[in-house]
Design a protein around this nucleic acid. Sequence first.
DNA 1: CCTTGAATTGAAGTGGACTTCAACTCGACC
DNA 2: GGTCGAGTTGAAGTCCACTTCAATTCAAGG
Lengths: 163, 163
Amino acid sequence: MQESLTIGQLAARSGVAPSALRYYERLGLIRADRTGGNQRRYARTELRRVAFIRVSQQVGVSLEEIREALDSLPASRTPTAADWAELSAAWRARLSEKIRLMTKLRDDLDGCIGCGCLSLQRCVLYNPDDKLSGEGPGARLMLPRPEPAASACGDCASAPAPA
Amino acid sequence: MQESLTIGQLAARSGVAPSALRYYERLGLIRADRTGGNQRRYARTELRRVAFIRVSQQVGVSLEEIREALDSLPASRTPTAADWAELSAAWRARLSEKIRLMTKLRDDLDGCIGCGCLSLQRCVLYNPDDKLSGEGPGARLMLPRPEPAASACGDCASAPAPA
DNA sequence: CCTTGAATTGAAGTGGACTTCAACTCGACC
DNA sequence: GGTCGAGTTGAAGTCCACTTCAATTCAAGG
């Protein structure tokens, strides 16, 4: 079993394209040693990092946030199982919270569908405090804060629940 | 109570910026009538559409997919509560599936943390069939399919669970 | 009628996460 | 020692979901 991996090997084992791995390196999420001929050689432990990155992305965490989390690992020594466990515990909480919000969203959706309403302030779906997941891409500088804008929902007066 | 809303009013009531509403219209997600002077006037029912769009986005659905879903609403008549209920039922299923995957992810993470491993093929976290959420932005044309790449995980041999 | 805040357009810019390209060098095997 | 796939770089391109800008027109109140 080799000590280090080429970028191609890491890519194959992690399912992440080489170009993405270079990109991660530029952002400081992973690191690599270099051969005499300037080629990257990855320690096997980098596999864990890449795995952590992908798992975190699945949950909607940005690379910047992931970088910050990874920065909490000890730089001086190879991270131990305990180090990883600590890091992952925080992520677990994050996941749980996301699950909670999504479950709430689903249940609220159920409630709102009863009246066919799905209108904004009324239905809790729009609760700006309980924001789920990333705010999405794009340059979002426009509104300082959408404001609660509380007002009666005029769209619920219609039909009751269909059979 | 007014029959129709200006773009500013719709924006205020939905918490979506006017520019975003125009963008949605370009993509065919919502529609507006025009005044003599070419200004948009939205029927109140558009509020439901916007609500649906935002809720769906929270769950990680792309605007293109949302458009397809909205296209299933009857174009000839104003959608009834039943129409919306049908549409939302499909979304509910989607949500439930997402919740299921996320819960699995969390539990797998727990399992993997025990050994500090979190390495790829071994830990189920990486299961490419159970893909959670969107694939993220960016031009992704590179790998036709990452392939299972099944191979033994050489990173689990280390420490047992920390106290 | 005049003002003033809201609306219009198309084109261009933004941010995140990558990918693609071109020109070049490494390095493992025959 | 030659070949050829794998690796290197920086710059530029891409996709999504918007935002920002500038120039201009609307529309409601005084």
